[in-house]
């Protein structure tokens, strides 16, 4: 469905994407994770033909992107993070306008409008001026506009930002239904639990490169079974930082918690010896399955708020 090979995009001397490779299969929900400046937005912009790239190959629907941009765009939709519609128009006028500029007419127009409205539960709001909608309703309209051309690929850039949990659940459920229609969804979000909830596959990007990619469940099992969280009685962060440098795979999660991943008996024994020598007492050691958030922090060294 999407094949990216050695894609390089530079802004001056800085490489936003550096020989980036990725393959996304049809009919899955694919999560794109990475800290700010990792290259997520650049990647989505390139896939939508909104940003040019210097090197590499991008193929969508087995068609080279550069030569077939118009054709590819007709089968894709980009749902931006911002509410990209007209607040002074009603819901219906907005949908009619975006259908109109895509030359969707006649019977297809009615079908497209019906589908976009029903999937996003917009029927009761159809004649409301968009400015008067709630945050969640506006997000649903933003998504509905993306569905008008019945796309095969949908790019979502943080579609649930700033809305209440109920509306967020609604939207996530809607996105999950796209998979049943064999559509491919590329999804970026600040919320790890959303990615865990709806994505089949995930790529974690940092500094313009993929640092981990795969099926989410497999990735968490593989990384999580091999990790340990060590809770300590209070000690100074400076000492922990010093210790973390001496043990491979050890990270300081907070002033009294360490994460060891991957762990094995040899590394664990070494860590415990060092802690004893430093007179730091261990409160608890937990061997547990890793959350996506912990994995993300582990791999990128970033807190969630930086994503």
């Amino acid at each position: 469905m999407i094949r990216i090979n050695n894609l390089t995009k530079r802004y001056g001397d800085t490489a936003a994407l550096d020989r980036f490779c990725l393959k996304i299969e049809r009919g899955i929900i694919f999560g794109l994770l990475g800290p700010n400046g990792a290259g997520k937005t650049t990647l989505i912009s390139i896939l939508n033909g909104l940003t040019r790239f210097q090197e590499g190959e991008v193929e969508i629907f087995n068609l080279p992107l550069r030569q077939n941009l118009r054709q590819i765009r007709k089968r894709c939709a980009f749902i931006p993070q911002s509410l990209a519609f007209y607040e002074n128009l009603t819901v219906h006028e907005n949908l009619r306008f975006f259908a109109g500029i895509q030359s969707i007419t006649g019977r297809t127009l009615q079908d497209s409008l019906d589908r976009a409205i029903s999937v996003n539960h917009l029927q009761p709001l159809i004649n409301r001026q968009s400015a008067t909608l709630s945050g969640g309703e506006k997000r649903r309209l933003n998504i509905a506009i993306g569905l008008l051309n019945n796309p095969d690929i949908l790019y979502f850039d943080e579609p649930t930002i700033g809305i209440d949990p109920e509306s967020r659940n609604d939207i996530l459920n809607t996105i999950r239904t796209f998979k049943d229609d064999n559509k491919t969804v590329i999804y970026t979000s600040h919320y790890m639990e959303e990615i865990e909830k709806i994505c089949d596959e995930v790529a974690i990007i940092n500094h313009g490169k993929i640092i981990r990619q795969g099926k989410l469940k497999e990735m968490l099992q593989q990384e999580g079974s091999n990790s340990a969280i060590i809770e300590l009685h209070k000690c100074g962060p400076t000492r922990l930082d010093r210790i973390s440098k001496t043990v491979t795979g050890l990270r300081v999660l907070n002033p009294d918690t360490l994460l060891l991943s991957p762990q094995n008996s040899g590394v664990m024994a070494k860590l415990l010896t060092i802690l004893e020598r430093e007179d730091i007492s261990v409160r608890q050691i937990r061997y547990q399955s890793l959350s996506l958030e912990s994995l993300f922090i582990n791999l990128t060294g970033q807190e969630q708020s930086d994503v």
Partner: peptide, 14 residues
């Protein structure tokens, strides 16, 4: 432009 409506339209082949 600021609401990214133009970007969306650009993505719709306008």
């Amino acid at each position: 432009r600021r609401q990214n409506t133009l970007m969306r339209m650009n993505g719709m082949n306008i």
